[in-house]
Nucleic acid binder design. Structure first.
Lengths: 161, 161
DNA sequence: AAAAATATGTCAGCTATATTGACATATTTT
DNA sequence: AAAATATGTCAATATAGCTGACATATTTTT
């Protein structure tokens, strides 16, 4: 399977010049999928207890990490619409995990902060993930962290966050 | 940003006996999030043209990778319910990207295969992701692939796939 | 001061992807 | 013959995203 370079197909992709890139890296693609699937499943148990989902986790995480970040910042980081964010953020505020403060310079802005409870929850969620990472690093061997860090950073879009 | 390894912070978590695990690895957690977010966004453009989503992508990918895999195999890999799979798989079959063959030993089973068109689409979807990986590897430096591979494998749950 | 732009919030409706539960069919195993 | 298994399907529900429209408060521009 996939041994023949005879692919021809529709040449909608002009890029294919010569012996170009016939080798698609399925192995890493798959490993990345499984790694992320299991990585994100870690906090699910904790979230479920409070009636939260992954969307709440992401919001809580970033607000915790960057205290005082505005709604616009958050939207930019998460790449979702404000309507999508609204419900989740409201629930986190109503539950007492996040609170808002009007911006000191621009009072239209809402600076977001985690409460004490929010910080505690954020850490509880991060812990199993962090443990998983630490174990994977250990199994990988010395120098893993620096290299993995550079790889992951390289996987992001250029202009970004 | 986040250059200091000096994290200390509030010691609300008592767990820290000595210099134990006060350090939650927020940096890798975040990098992993961004990396995966951008990685999965690559094929979206192609998918949208055909009215497909990421669910279709995943199904097509695994069937292409493991020809003859059964529905049960697929459910196990994707970790979704058969009802969730049903619609997506049906659409891929109706569109001519996947076809089914009754199992030769056990005729209750449906062995799944990508058609010629399915293979072409699977490859078109994998290509930008593969390119992204290759570029990230290059930026990371020599030895990256082996190390990243081991790291990602280490991030998966033990008993798995 | 008036108008325009901006940051946020909210209402309403839609879509994609997942869930659970129940039941049907064909086939294999007991 | 009965039970178990692999698959398919119907129905209802949940989550998390989307677009479009409009409201409010505030800041910037004219």
């Amino acid at each position: 399977m996939a041994g023949q370079p005879n692919q021809k197909a529709e040449n909608e992709m002009p890029s294919a010049g010569a012996d170009n890139t016939d080798a698609v890296d399925f192995e890493i693609i798959e490993l990345f999928f499984f790694a992320y699937r299991d990585f994100t499943s870690d906090p699910d148990v904790i979230l479920e207890k409070r009636g939260f989902g992954r969307a709440h986790h992401r919001v809580l995480h970033f607000v915790d990490r960057e205290p005082g970040m505005t709604v616009a910042n958050l939207l930019d980081t998460l790449r979702i619409t404000k309507q999508s964010l609204a419900r989740v953020l409201k629930q986190l505020i109503d539950s007492g995990y996040i609170h808002q403060v009007a911006g000191p310079e621009d009072r239209r802005q809402r600076m977001l902060y985690t409460t004490k409870e929010g910080k505690t929850l954020a850490r509880a969620l991060a812990e199993p993930q962090s443990r998983r990472i630490a174990e994977a690093m250990e199994k990988t061997g010395p120098g893993a962290r620096e290299l993995v860090k550079r790889f992951l950073a390289g996987m992001k879009n250029a202009g970004d966050n």
